[in-house]
Design a protein around this nucleic acid. Structure first.
Length: 686
DNA sequence: AGTAAGAGCGCG
DNA sequence: AAAGCGCGCTCTTACT
């Protein structure tokens, strides 16, 4: 079937970035100025505002024809909320839409149209002028009463039309080059669209009241901070300045994050002003939580916030949170009963009593953040999360059978928890002699968290600064060695993956297999991409792979090795073992952090193991989402290993939900899945 | 006033 | 046999 390619240009007084796609698409003043369109390889035509929708397009859409867009979530929203709702266009269904952004993400390519095109090797002329004109035309330059006034002339529209059509052509070229989503992933994407359109429900009464309290508290705390620091630090959020100021008193903490801050405050001999300032900082809480309240408010429509999830934004396939970012709400929250009471006091504006009974209001707001997510009136939430799914996933993929048995034993109530098991196995101690309070269990926890993906002493310290502070490097290295000796299959898995990836890159087309049937992954280089096929059938992608030598873990530091030499270096490495300049697989990626530049990065066994484990666990979640949705549960929220659905539920539904979550897909037979499920009005931690 | 970059911080 | 990895947003500072 011939696909229809479309790209729209729109304008609105709504700030898309701040108010989000939901508010943008639903605002009565949002307009679609034009849409370029083309069937298959035909030339692009331009539909302009005010014209009738061409009959060919209408018939195509009504008969379920395929429509392609880059960031098709935007195209769908504008099509349905503006053109279908107000201008008589036929409804566009997500099932018939294909998103090239989703496909780019699934190949680990950048999302922005132009960057994706560049990464795919398309020679496109950058229309910088067109973009500038678009940006000028898309928001009001002034207001005439309640009417927005835009930069708008026939000449500007013509220029915008040219810009629009170029984007359409680029989108089509991208479509031709990317691997389409599999039928299964397309279904996941369609479900993602439904979830994004439903939105996350919020308790707006409590939220509005909390905003008032928060603003007042912020003012008070900033004023006190200014006083304590003699004007050096004007606001509690200025961590850099606070650190600088504290240094004059000889207090030089690495970080003022939540845990470190409270630890620092435990020291008795802190200079009085520093202690006071740090307490203020602590009381100021996490300011992002107050910003979050504002972000929610700006995006909210009828007590719900839509479009908070981006499909496959992580290279492993995970979703990423957008806008309000529901993926990083603090989990350090009070008991449900206390949350209820705290929110009631906030709604009553009774900050004095709140302060007396529970503590600093700003801290409480931050801690209760999850509680602001509340099912709509008459509804409840069913939530469930997979228990330690990545730990299980790694053991499953690597074939660490004793550990899988330990998980099964624990799930059936006939075995100790896995932190105790890890310590026991590492040091030859019977795990059943280690109870919850035993410090050895804490060591087991650090081991489990830090060493699974080839981490060492550095990882242990980074992961658990509190537990490792008074330990020597040698001791931590002992923890590592003990853990590795207890997990020979996992250790072997790292090296198998590393060798497999290098082999696959050096011999394009060759299929290199790691792992036994069932948990098998396959590497293969085709064209400019290294693919890794997962047990679910989904593939991970590493663009422009290469085998190079140099320092690992750093960006843009790799010495490029001419292709002809790569074989020689690799052969020598195999022959002589470890030496300076070992080869690693490298690939090109959006640099993490702020710049997001397209640059080369190295990988290694542990990292590949992590990528694959995370990806497999993501597939388990996606499958579970499809299952619960098919069973009639409406999913409204998900967080990597956790699903929340909204509706009218009974205890029976809860068991049904739990059973659905724990159902293991055929491709993961033998994976010991366990899930804890809850029923509540407000979002909480299991 | 607006943009870019880096630090900081939260989650799984 | 050596390296934790995967995200996004806010705030501040520096620069234009």
């Amino acid at each position: 079937m011939t696909p229809l390619f479309i790209d729209k240009e729109t304008r609105s007084p709504v700030d898309l970035k701040k108010a989000g796609l939901g508010r943008y698409a639903r605002h009565p003043l949002t307009e679609v100025l034009m849409m370029c369109w083309a069937f298959g390889d035909e030339d692009f035509a331009l539909w302009q505002q005010g014209e009738l929708l061409p009959t060919r397009i209408r018939q195509h859409v009504e008969s379920g024809g395929i429509v392609v867009g880059h960031h098709a979530t935007f195209e769908l929203a504008l099509w349905n909320y503006v053109m279908a709702a107000r201008h008589g266009w036929p409804r566009l269904r997500a099932e018939q839409v294909r998103c090239t952004l989703a496909a780019c993400y699934a190949m680990a390519l950048p999302g922005a149209l132009e960057n994706a095109a560049h990464a795919l090797g398309l020679k496109i002329a950058k229309d910088a002028e067109g973009r500038t004109i678009m940006l000028r035309m898309c928001k009001p330059r002034a207001w005439d009463g309640d009417k927005p006034v835009y930069h708008d002339t026939p000449e500007l529209r013509a220029r915008l039309g040219a810009y629009c059509s170029v984007d359409g052509q680029v989108e089509r070229e991208i479509y031709k080059r990317v691997l389409p989503l599999s039928d299964k992933e397309q279904r996941v994407w369609v479900l993602d669209q439904a979830i994004n359109n439903r939105g996350v429900p919020f308790d707006m009464e409590s939220l509005d009241a909390a905003l008032v309290v928060a603003d007042k508290e912020k003012e008070r705390l900033d004023a006190e901070m200014t006083k304590v620091t003699d004007g050096t630090v004007a606001v509690c959020s200025n961590v850099g300045m606070l650190k600088e100021w504290a240094a004059d008193f000889g207090v030089m903490p690495d970080s003022l994050a939540k845990a470190e801050l409270s630890e620092l405050l435990d020291y008795e001999d802190l200079p009085a002003p520093v202690k006071e300032a740090l307490k203020l900082r602590q009381s100021a809480g996490r300011f992002t939580s107050i910003s979050k309240l504002k972000a929610i408010k700006q995006r909210e429509i009828a007590r719900r916030v839509p479009f908070l999830f981006q499909y496959h934004a992580a290279t492993t396939g995970r979703w990423a949170g957008r806008g309000v970012q529901p993926h990083n709400f603090t989990r350090d929250l009070p008991e449900p009963h206390d949350v209820e009471e705290i929110l009631r006091l906030i709604r009553d504006g009774n900050t004095e009593w709140l302060n007396l009974a529970y503590g600093e209001p700003s801290i409480l707001i931050s801690k209760c953040l999850r509680g602001f997510i509340r099912a709509a009136k008459g509804n409840t939430f069913i939530g469930g999360d997979f228990a330690n799914v990545e730990g299980r996933g790694l053991a499953y993929l690597a074939g660490e059978e004793w550990k899988l048995d330990a998980y099964r034993a624990y799930d059936e109530g006939r075995g100790p928890d896995l932190y105790c098991v890890a310590y026991g196995k590492s040091f030859g101690v019977d795990p059943s002699t280690i109870d919850k309070k035993d410090p050895r269990r804490q060591i087991g926890k650090v081991q489990e968290l830090a060493f699974g993906y080839q981490g060492g002493v550095g990882a242990a310290r980074k992961m658990a600064p509190r537990d490792t502070r008074d330990k020597s490097d040698a001791e931590l290295d002992g923890w590592k060695t003990g853990w590795r000796n207890a997990h020979l299959k996992i250790k072997g898995y790292w090296y198998d993956l590393q060798t497999a990836a290098i082999d696959a890159v050096l011999e394009p087309g060759k299929i290199v297999i790691v792992g036994a049937a069932g948990r098998r992954v396959m590497f293969r280089k085709r064209g400019s991409f290294l693919w890794c096929r997962l047990p679910s059938g989904r593939t991970l992608c590493y663009p422009y792979p290469d085998v190079r030598t140099g320092d690992f873990g750093q960006y843009l530091t790799f010495k490029s090795v001419p292709d002809a030499l790569v074989w020689g270096i690799y052969a020598k490495w195999l022959r002589e073992g470890k030496e300076k300049g070992e080869p690693n697989t490298t690939y090109i990626v959006d640099e993490p952090g702020n710049t997001r530049e397209w640059c080369r990065i190295s990988t290694y066994g542990g990292k590949l193991a992590e990528n694959i484990t995370q990806a497999v666990c993501r597939d388990l979640l996606a499958d579970a989402m499809l299952r619960v949705e098919a069973a009639g549960f409406e999913v409204v929220l998900h967080v990597h290993d956790e699903i929340v659905a909204e509706g009218k539920f009974t205890e029976e539904d809860r068991s049904r939900f739990e059973a659905l979550m724990c159902q293991v897909p055929d491709w993961a037979a033998g994976f010991p899945v366990s899930a804890g499920c809850w029923l509540a009005e407000r979002y909480r931690k299991e």
